[in-house]
Design a protein around this nucleic acid. Structure first.
Lengths: 232, 232
DNA sequence: GTCTATATTATGATAGAC
DNA sequence: GTCTATCATAATATAGAC
């Protein structure tokens, strides 16, 4: 059976429609990331999300099978985007000294948190009580991420370049120290008189966070930390 | 005009009613702290709060003039209870070396966060965007608290006992490092295989947090930190 | 895929009896 | 002060036209 003349046009129309559908889906997720980060799951209505996305709330049901499905899609995108970014950064550093790897990954972590604190706001909602969703995220993405960082911390400790203690525990201390200031920026602004998102502040913040955890490997060396790489 | 015989009984009844009213008010606040900490302002209904408090939702309106008034009452109680506790701890340490004062206040801060992480969960909701409420809390309670800690950090830095850097900045690093682990305990549990609320863990956590920020004043001294006071 | 219309339930707030 | 009854609005979800 030969394809009739209308088929090409038809296929083209289908592709365009699919394209538009994908864009709608993405716009909804974008808007939902913003709202969920600000108000948490219970504090968000699919109506306000869809309005901010420029569509109707019924499309949330169509694309995500309801509010919960939208939440999954949001967490999936945000967490996956973070972990793959870190993973790629690590792969680009193959062969480099592990202490340097760790330092650069953690620096990137801080800068990522400054660029988009919504990951941590979302996690603060998702991880504050046990749930199947949390378990799934841990199993799928975050578990191996924590293992990877713990491995690097252990290696850095062996070389005497990182403070002593349980690697995962120290990782959590780092995460907290690095991100709190961005998660509560209005309060910080009020206390410190400057925005933590100011580029100058971010540089100082990166240095302060790293300085807390990295040690100069030899006692004879100066306490000043080596110049940090700025380029990716 | 003499008071009639019924007055004594009447006054007694009024006192009892007032007492009961106060208890109702307190029970509502207790329940609201729990709910607001978990779900944030938008995610909470006055109905569920009042059910958990064992009353009707109309009493929320009566006692607090609505949901927003309840939110104010909650934040007021939680923040005030924290700052006065720290204030009293400080007053009990009059005359003590400032480095020791700071160390003990920060230790108390960590243990307080472990006892009741809801303060920080509430703040993470209240301080993530600017608002008149936040401004009021800062002006009334938290502003002077941050000033007090900054003063002690500065003094400790002069004595070479605390890491260098802007005192308020370092304070935020400390707050983040100390509290994140309790705010996301289910995630931590999954990663570390133990609860951060385990007494043994809390002790190790206190030590780890303090060790990050306090320095041994002399290079010749051993790196081990002095035994921490456990009592009050 | 997207829209309109609508069903159902939840929520914040109020009025009035006791 | 606390309760019952009720209202107006907002939310999730679904059905069906296009």
């Amino acid at each position: 059976m030969e394809a009739p003349a209308t088929d090409r046009k038809g296929a083209q129309r289908v592709r365009k429609e699919q394209q538009r559908a994908i864009e709608t889906r993405e716009r909804i997720i974008d808007a939902a990331i913003e709202e969920f980060a600000r108000h948490g799951f219970e504090g968000v209505s699919t109506r306000s999300v869809s309005i901010n996305a420029g569509t109707r709330h019924t499309l949330v049901t169509y694309h995500f099978e309801g509010k919960e499905g939208l939440w999954y899609a949001v967490m999936d995108r945000v967490v996956r985007s973070f972990t793959t970014q870190q993973q790629e950064r690590l792969e680009g550093l193959r062969g480099v000294d592990e202490v340097v790897q760790l330092r650069l990954l953690l620096e990137e972590f801080v800068r990522y948190s400054a660029r988009d604190p919504r990951l941590h706001k979302l996690m603060s909602h998702a991880a504050s009580e046990a749930s199947p969703q949390l378990e799934r995220m841990m199993a799928e993405y975050l578990g191996s991420y924590f293992k990877m960082i713990a491995r690097l911390i252990k290696a850095a400790q062996v070389k005497g370049a990182f403070v002593a203690g349980d690697p995962n525990h120290l990782h959590y201390l780092f995460i907290g120290a690095a991100t709190r200031i961005f998660m509560q920026s209005p309060e910080v602004n009020r206390v410190m008189g400057e925005s933590p998102f100011d580029p100058g502040f971010i540089d100082r913040h990166v240095a302060a966070c790293l300085d807390l955890f990295f040690k100069a490997p030899e006692a004879g060396k100066a306490m000043k930390r080596p110049p940090r790489s700025k380029a990716q």
